Every structure is written in structure tokens, then in C-alpha cells.
Computed example of a mutant assay.
Amino acid sequence: MTLLAVERIKLLTTRSPWWCAVASIVLAGSFTALVVGNATPEFPASVATTQYGYQMGLAVIMVLGALSVTTEYRFNTIRTTFQAVPNRTAVLAAKATVVALLALIIGELTAFSSWGLSLLLAPDYDLALNSTADIVNVAGVGVVYAIAAVIAVAVGLLVRHSAGAISLLMIYTLAVEGLVQLIPKVGADIYEWLPFNVAHKFLTGNGESNGGLEFAGPPLSTSPLSPGWALAYFAGFALVLLIVAIVTTNKRDA
């Protein structure tokens, strides 16, 4: 508990978490407003549509997770931390936990603010959370953000430089997974198992929250997993990457 409190204080006494929280809510909400505000009978709004911009916020969360680590290396506070607590594994696990919890809160605020904004912009459409799929599509955003934050922490530990870690995360999440599909013959098969495509399957399932219309929401994931197994796969990927990062950090000089 002491380590968790220390990491919470270190994280929340900097400006980056607060700016990232605001940026996530504003970016996701703005993008959602553009989509929902232009809904028509031919392209109606649905619960899935209200979360059209969640990936914009996800990018911000990845930046937050990476900065929570790389700024400590930049200002050499990580060395002081390891001197005070020689158990590096416990320190890094506490950091990942605190960042994940903060990302969870930001994710829920982002998702429900986008949903609430959509209710105001499109009152004539059925945007109520009437099913489990609808609830997961909205409330699940925070869970995805939390797991993605752990991935970002792990990448930050491995790279240790803010620019490098953030560039790597942004390039991968915004471009690499989509470009993999262009690989002849095997691209689509590989894409099915890439982590953020799988995470999208957890949120959108088979399109149940699209109101029965395939185009009334973001494109669906191609992952063959069920939403539950998709979440487990995404979490497992993050855990393995974090373990690799912690083992690597234990072997390096601070």
C-alpha cells in the first residue's frame, strides 16, 4: 500500500495526467460529436456510434503511460526510487497498477461523457444501454484504456526515452496494425491476432450495439475470439509485455 501511495503521489503531482484526462475527453467527445451530429436515417446513430472516438482518447492514454516512466528516467528520479526501494519489481508493479487505475477512471469519464453528449445531439435515436453488449461497448472503454496503459508503461520501461517510446506507441497503434492487413496472403490472418484489433472485438463484439446495422458504428474487429476471450487475450499480452519489461529493468543499470 505504501508503494501504491508513493506512485499515486508522484503521478498526480505532475501536470501530465490532468492534461491527458482533459485531452482524452475532449478529443473523443469532439470526434463523436462530428459523427453523431451528422447522423441521418440512412446512417443512424447507435450506442456503438457514441464511442466512435474512443481510439483518439486511447492514443492520449498511451502517451500518459509512457510519460509516467520515461520522465523518471529523464530526471533521474527512478534511480532515487530504486535506492529507496531495492525491490524494483514491486516498484514497477505498483507504478503499472496506479497508471492503470488512473487510465480506467479517465476511460470511463471519456466513454460516458461521449455517450451523454450523443444523447443531447441525437435525442431521436435509441441510445439507451439496453443490453449487455451496449453496456460493454461503453463501460468497457475504461477497461481497454487501463490495459493499454500497462502496455505503454512496459514500452516506456524498455525504451526509457519519451520521444522514442511515444513515437513507437503512436506508430504502432495508429498505423502498423492497419498496414499489416496489406501483406499479401497472410496479412489478414496476422491482423486477426494483433492486440488492439482483439481489444476492439471486446468492445464491439459482433456488432450487437450497432442497432442491427453494420454501418451504424465503427468497423468491427476481425478477431475470431469471443468478447470475453478477446479481453483475456489483450490483458495477457499486456501482462507478458510488462513482465518482459520488468525483467529487463532488473538487469539494467538504473
Rank of each mutant, 00 (worst) to 15 (best):
V136Y: 10
A163T: 15
V138N: 03
L157D: 03
G142L: 01
V155H: 02
A148H: 14
L157Q: 07
G156N: 06
V153D: 02
N130D: 14
A149R: 02
N137I: 08
V150C: 03
A165H: 06
A152L: 02
G142V: 00
G142K: 00
T132P: 07
L129S: 11
A163Y: 14
A148V: 10
V159R: 07
D134Y: 08
V141Y: 13
D134I: 01
G164R: 10
A152N: 12
A149F: 03
S162L: 00
N137V: 04
T132N: 12
G140N: 08
G142Y: 09
G142S: 02
A152T: 11
I135A: 14
V143L: 15
G156S: 07
V144I: 15
A154R: 04
G164T: 12
V159G: 05
A146C: 00
A152M: 06
V144G: 03
I151T: 14
T132G: 15
V150I: 11
A148E: 04
V144T: 13
A149V: 00
I151G: 13
A149D: 00
A128Y: 11
V155D: 00
T132I: 12
V150M: 00
D134W: 07
R160Q: 11
A165P: 09
A165W: 13
N137E: 10
A149E: 05
V144R: 06
V136R: 15
I147Q: 10
A154N: 02
A154Y: 06
T132F: 12
A139D: 10
A165L: 07
V155F: 04
S131V: 01
A128M: 12
N137T: 15
A148I: 04
A139H: 12
A163F: 15
L158A: 10
A152K: 03
D134L: 07
V159T: 09
G164A: 08
A139Y: 12
V153R: 02
A146G: 00
